[in-house]
Design a protein around this nucleic acid. Structure first.
Lengths: 197, 197
DNA sequence: TTATATTTTGAATTTCGGTGTAAATACTAA
DNA sequence: TTAGTATTTACACCGAAATTCAAAATATAA
């Protein structure tokens, strides 16, 4: 990649980040391109030099967020940790991305229906893939007799739902730290999978 | 209430329901008043005879949904059931409203940030009240030694999050019925509250 | 330095949807 | 039947926001 292309890519990424921040703060529709431009000290016009439409911008936010989640999960799966640890770590990783890269992931989680159909399908496919990783862990646990038999799909929906709701209530000022929250969630959500002891 | 007033109220409620349906399908912004009017075989203009603004319409959706949830929960609290049963029934009731009155509750759960500040505060207050009912049940359980000590606020966030996420994946065609889902969720989500046995 | 390619600007254009309103129509009660 | 009120229609206004574009500014390479 040439010097110039590189810089252009850099800028584009920047635009996406700022857009994500505003989308998550005000919602897709209320965040105008002028807002985004102002935040970047650009003009509306120049943003169009880097992107084709506002819709594409939203899509890129989604894609970046999903890729981050997927990559992290694949790292965890590649380890040789026992599967219940993988599951716990997967949950914690997801939570940390939700509260860490707040704006990016918040957009991806909360504004799905703003995406036009073509874009949406791509994102939904990625999310399915991501969820399948979790489901497989649960299924393996059941096969091995570590977990009790139950519909893994539902269990994963519960886990994902609980986590994905976090941006709705989370505040930096809360009495629990990110890590404490992640720990508590992982424990609470994995516990019901085990057989009674 | 006179005959006419009654009919007017009836129509208004109808408008709200149809609006909720479209808001939940396409999002607040993409559902235009013309859409809503067309669905009702009205014209835009006549809708304004019943409401003052699109924003008000959204607000009414929220309010109706929250009131339904709160009322049901208060009924449950008024019984003499043991508290862990109340909790389970509360969860089941919430789930059944989420999947039953899908559109209405979906709007209330998913489109909070579309509400203007004044309206939003009213809704947030109602939601807090509703959540407090759940939190109190958990706290009582802890006091009585039925549940293990844990931050009830977090536990309720997990419970609410898992449930409120349902509209994102639920489909009539799924392999589990509403009731089965409600039962499974209630079990999965309450189980971690108990002490190990 | 000069020619060429890239980037930025700012204004102009366009589109769309919420809202206001005056006139037309339908309904109710006497 | 009729007067008066409730309801509906049709249309126009208006602002907001996405997008386009031609010209200006800037950077790069020869």
């Amino acid at each position: 990649m040439s010097f110039r292309e590189e810089r252009a890519a850099e800028r584009k990424k920047n635009i996406i980040k700022v857009a994500a921040k505003l989308f998550s703060e005000k919602g897709y529709h209320d965040a105008t391109l002028e807002d985004i431009a102002r935040n970047l000290k650009y003009t509306k016009g120049s943003i169009y030099y880097y992107i084709n439409s506002k819709q594409e911008l939203l899509f890129q936010c989604h894609e970046l967020a999903m890729d981050m989640l997927i990559n992290r999960m694949e790292e965890i799966l590649a380890t040789d940790w026992p599967l219940e640890v993988k599951l716990r770590e997967g949950i914690k990783a997801h939570i940390e991305m939700v509260v860490g890269e707040m704006s990016l992931v918040t957009v991806a989680l909360g504004q799905e229906f703003e995406l036009e159909e073509d874009y949406r399908q791509i994102i939904v496919a990625k999310r399915d893939r991501y969820e399948r990783y979790f489901r497989r862990l649960v299924d393996e646990g059941i096969e091995k007799g570590i977990f009790r038999p139950l519909p893994s799909k539902m269990a994963v929906f519960i886990i994902m739902g609980a986590i994905n709701w976090i941006p709705r209530w989370y505040s930096e000022k809360g009495s629990m730290s990110k890590e404490e929250i992640a720990g508590f969630f992982a424990d609470y959500l994995v516990r019901p999978l085990f057989k009674k002891d």
